[in-house]
Amino acid sequence: MLKIYAVCGHGLGSSMMLKINIRKVLKEKSIEGEVDTVSLGESSGLDADIFVTFPDIVDELANRHDREKIVVIDDFSDLEEVREKILGAVDKLNLN
C-alpha cells in the first residue's frame, strides 16, 4: 500500500494540515494509502513511497532521503497545489 510521510520541523503543526489535505486528495481519487506526520529528525529511520515537505527544510530532508521521493509544497493549506503535486507523484510511482 502507498505510504506517505508529511514532514516538518516538529512533525506537529504544518505537517498535520498537510496530512489532512493529502488524505482528502487520496480519498477523492479512491487511492488506498496511509499518510502520517513525522519530524525532520525522526524521518531519518523511516522509509516511504513519498515524503512531502516545505521549501525551507527540503535540503535537510534531501540529506536523509532520495530526492526523487520528495515532493515540495509551497503552501500546505492550498488544496489545489497539494492535489496537483501529490497526484503527479502518485502517477510517477505507478509508471515505474
Binding site: 516538518c8 503543526g13 493549506s77
Partner: peptide
C-alpha cells in the same frame, strides 16, 4: 485534529483555518 477539521468544515463552511507558524515562513 483531522476530526476537528472535518467537523468544522461541516459546521462552519468557509471559515479561515488558523494554522501553525510555518504557514508564513515562505
Amino acid at each position: 485534529v483531522p476530526a476537528f477539521e472535518g467537523i468544522s468544515e461541516k459546521v462552519v463552511p468557509g471559515a479561515r483555518p488558523a494554522l501553525d507558524c510555518p504557514i508564513i515562513f515562505n
